[in-house]
Design a protein around this nucleic acid. Sequence first.
DNA 1: CCCGAGTTTTAGATCGTTCTAAATGCGGAT
DNA 2: ATCCGCATTTAGAACGATCTAAAACTCGGG
Lengths: 333, 333
Amino acid sequence: MARQRVTLEQVAKAAGVSRATVSLVVRDSPLVADETREKVQRTMAALDYVRDIGAARLRSNSSRTIGLIVPNLVNPFFTEFLSGVEQVMGDQDRVVLLADSHDDPLRQDAILQRFRGHGVDGVILCPAQTSDPDLLTRMRLWNLPLVQALREIGPGHGDYAGADYRDGILQALRHLRNLGHRDIAFLSVTADTSARTERSVGFAQALAQTGTRNAGIIEADLTWDAAEQSATEILATRATAVLCFNDVLAAGLILGLRRAGTKPGRDISVVGLDDLPLARMMHPALTSVAVHPRRIGNEAAALLGRRLRDPSIGPGRSILPTQLIVRDSTGRI
Amino acid sequence: MARQRVTLEQVAKAAGVSRATVSLVVRDSPLVADETREKVQRTMAALDYVRDIGAARLRSNSSRTIGLIVPNLVNPFFTEFLSGVEQVMGDQDRVVLLADSHDDPLRQDAILQRFRGHGVDGVILCPAQTSDPDLLTRMRLWNLPLVQALREIGPGHGDYAGADYRDGILQALRHLRNLGHRDIAFLSVTADTSARTERSVGFAQALAQTGTRNAGIIEADLTWDAAEQSATEILATRATAVLCFNDVLAAGLILGLRRAGTKPGRDISVVGLDDLPLARMMHPALTSVAVHPRRIGNEAAALLGRRLRDPSIGPGRSILPTQLIVRDSTGRI
DNA sequence: CCCGAGTTTTAGATCGTTCTAAATGCGGAT
DNA sequence: ATCCGCATTTAGAACGATCTAAAACTCGGG
């Protein structure tokens, strides 16, 4: 039960130098003589010294720690994103505090306070639905660097990483039009986020640009069951093709359509957004717009790194290109 | 750039009491008078005081922080598990440091050092393949409480949370036998973990217990492509049914089988393990053994919580029951 | 009016680091 | 000899909390 943490002090004593010198070695400062440095490094290794980053932060105000808040850990989309963030942060020798807001602004607030208490250097936030726009000013007040990702509170300013959904939707509708579709429905979500408005607007614009018609907008909760049940509503429209808010809904919808006796890809075309891995596995394989959430995660992490290095730099916005992947769920009318 | 962190000192001054009193209020100690407590709480709220947990830990040795290492963030199985851990820890007002070892023991070591430096109270580890058994003694030396999950280094002692795969496999083979199958193949993975040996042994035992025959053990990398390609090898055996290491492999295999012109569920039966959400979405829908990774995550977190509360308590092992979910990928011979 | 037993509050040391400012050692130029 | 400049090293004060041990109250009883 012995408290047996090895401290700077002990290393210093063992190496016959002062605490301050060891501290300099730890942070590999150029001020220390090569001979001393080596001696100290040897004793550090011998004693299995591990620097206490908490104590270091107390004095220096850099915890090498960042907070990451996602609204959902079940959707593979977010976990791929998360994996992208973790990857870059690990390479920068930073550590990621992870939390799931369950799309609940109150919970999100609580998490932010907790993160604040832990002295994170910055936060990557994928905001919960209906987050208070006021949150941004509060965070500025707290002096807590923020990068938003995938979704955004309020009008876009500040660091942001996302994907060019509008263009992706345009690609999808062009593809559908080339296959002869004219009446297109949109299976949207109930949750109110910037991601939804972006895609709704993108849908409207793409309709105009491709000369196709809105056959109806159906909303469903973001679950497979809800999407499955929405199939009947979709079939009640005169749509020959459906664009879905994301692949989760598309997958559920396809299940529902099959259950209702139609053959997706032949009787009705379905396009997803996100191109989750499962898109390939479904039957019929899902035509979807690839978004590469992992890369967005990389970008978000890079943006935050940049911000931490230079807080005065202008906001960085990173909108990654998207790409339609054609599979079997879309076909000629 | 203003230094604007609100400290105990400032709260104390504003409330007209001492630092120590405020500290007691923060930790809601019963020692402080109700009147004082309220006064202090009001000033804390007014000043937007946030307790610095790093500083607290320095003195008190409890960081309310735990480390979680998974070998893979892409596999939904692990992210569900992770989500289970996060949930319980969040409720305990603890924060999760997350890292991905990519199944690489060296990386895993580096992560552990980083966690140690951050002063985590304990670690939940899903060990990377071929982790050195020596790691356990090292961690004991470091005085770092450990809960293993899903996989285990060395012979089982110490806290562990996992699922009863053996029984799940037995259920699967019974089911296959009842459908008339006698020759059963096992699609395994190349990665060498306790999870693999557990399932291999379970397969062998279940063969014996059900009076079925081993039609061959095929190994594939843990990717869809590899599983897809293994279909030809599987078809070269005389197996009428295949048990797969997990649903990812099962999904790939089914794709490969279909591509090869067979009809899974009719010509050949396929059973997965884990019952990932995608099992429902595939065509044919995958018969699989439900493992509930989220609950395992809950358990692992609970075990660690228990250990932190009382370090002297005996090791806890939590093996959750599994349950065969029959869908369309298995059929009468 | 003092005492003792509770209850409540507090001063000061402490945790392991970094920072600041100053001390030290060493050549070479004066 | 003395002094300067440079490269190294260091003592001691932070940082923001908790802990320990003692101080300051309160109150009823002698």
